[in-house]
Design a protein around this nucleic acid. Structure first.
Lengths: 239, 239
DNA sequence: CTGGTAAGAAGTGCATGCACTTCGTGCGGA
DNA sequence: TCCGCACGAAGTGCATGCACTTCTTACCAG
């Protein structure tokens, strides 16, 4: 049913975003084809698409490498994400149905539950990232704008590529959860100004946590290790 | 020297952006391959890249069509371009050398000359668009940011795709020329705040001219016809 | 021992062939 | 006359083969 080319694209994208394929790694067509159980042709097409998406770098006759994102700084990405996702939130508030609002709330509550488990243990960071991404994806799809989706997808790629997911201290985490819930309220109230404003706060808060965040601060919630990226961060492209 | 795949990509992109391939048009691999004098393989790869760039739409077993951009509104694009290109201007002001400044000025003067020819005749709109694009491309390349380039490229695509280049009245045209010259001054002064501010004004002015512009206003400078898009608008991708 | 070079290996770029899906067309039945 | 269906054409998806480029390595000159 699904095409080999799409399978290759998804698999490679997931591996790159998860960090299994580190920046600078050489991606040979023959090896990938053998690994994925298909011929070189669909692998080639997937690599071209990844190159257009900015995830790999292509040199003629010299193959593909995972892109080295160090040149870009996180601040740039967040400066661009604020108006983009703010606009998405605005559009979502205007177009969301009641069912959409309920679905959004479900995802926001899932993030909250993962951030503060019932047992009182440590947050399940993988679940937080997963549901956070689902939340933002739904928000974006509610905006129903192709160029908005295109732009935001690229920016999120960048955010994930330079995996600065070192630390999200408790305060930032709870602010994030509160923002999600407030966004749901704004969308359900069909208030675009409110929604946009909260979304911008949400992103600036995240930027502060990631940029200013001294990862070794007390109470810092860190990943198991620096090279361990967020799991399951690759679902729902909402193309 | 140049690869067939790249030639196909460039040719198709140019044809789409120029409007030779109108939205909704079916792009068959065999026809394009014959037309371009190559086999289907590089054409297929070019189509995948165009799909990733958001210029064509791909359906499994059903071929490629030029994307229908009507869903997105121009306002969205400009709201996103303002911070993005503003940031690019800011970075350019910080990193530009004296030679860069001179090159920028050369392009700005070229736009000015095309907008107000020496003989006093009507503006050479094709030259205006070409040099305008060169100016913005150079600005972007001076910012040296991959994600910035990625985002702006997508937004410019959208702007051109929905070809609202109907009218740019005299006032707007001269404002645009003045903005370019002021941008050069800001960059040469290495003043990021100034550069960003002027760039934002530049874009908002353009938005007003395009959105609010009643194309049938007196003194309006229109293209020869509605389906005639800007020529030579496709150079210098600054990938 | 070091630097340059040429032959081989490895890998990419493109063309071509085949299987399968989709669409158009004509036929038969109600 | 109109609807359903099957058959054929056209086109896409993928595999494979060949030419050419790039990288590696072993060899020889100095």
């Amino acid at each position: 049913m699904t095409m080999s080319s799409d399978r290759a694209f998804e698999a490679l994208r997931a591996d790159i975003l998860r960090g299994r394929h580190r920046p600078g790694l050489r991606l040979g067509e023959v090896g990938l084809a053998r690994e994925l159980g298909m011929s070189r042709t669909p692998v080639r097409e997937a690599l071209r698409r990844l190159a257009a998406a900015g995830l790999v770098e292509l040199n003629a006759n010299r193959g593909a490498r995972v892109v080295e994102p160090a040149a870009d700084d996180l601040n740039t990405v967040f400066v661009l994400r604020a108006p983009a996702e703010g606009l998405a939130a605005r559009a979502a508030a205007l177009s969301a149905t009641d069912e959409d609002g309920e679905e959004l709330q479900r995802l926001a509550l899932a993030v909250a539950a993962a951030a503060r488990p019932a047992g009182g243990g440590p947050p399940d960071l993988d679940a937080v990232y997963l549901h956070n991404r689902e939340f933002h994806d739904l928000m974006l799809s509610l905006a129903r704008s192709a160029s908005l989706a295109q732009v935001i997808a690229g920016l999120v790629h960048s955010t994930v590529l330079m995996r600065t997911y070192r630390a999200f201290d408790e305060d930032a985490m709870h602010r994030s959860v509160a923002h999600h819930l407030e966004l749901v309220a704004a969308v359900r109230a069909h208030d675009p100004d409110w929604a946009e404003s909260v979304m911008r706060s949400h992103l600036f808060s995240a930027r502060a946590a990631l940029l200013g965040g001294r990862g070794d601060a007390p109470h810092a919630i860190t990943h198991t290790g620096p090279p361990a990226p967020a799991e399951d961060l690759t679902e729902g492209e909402t193309a």
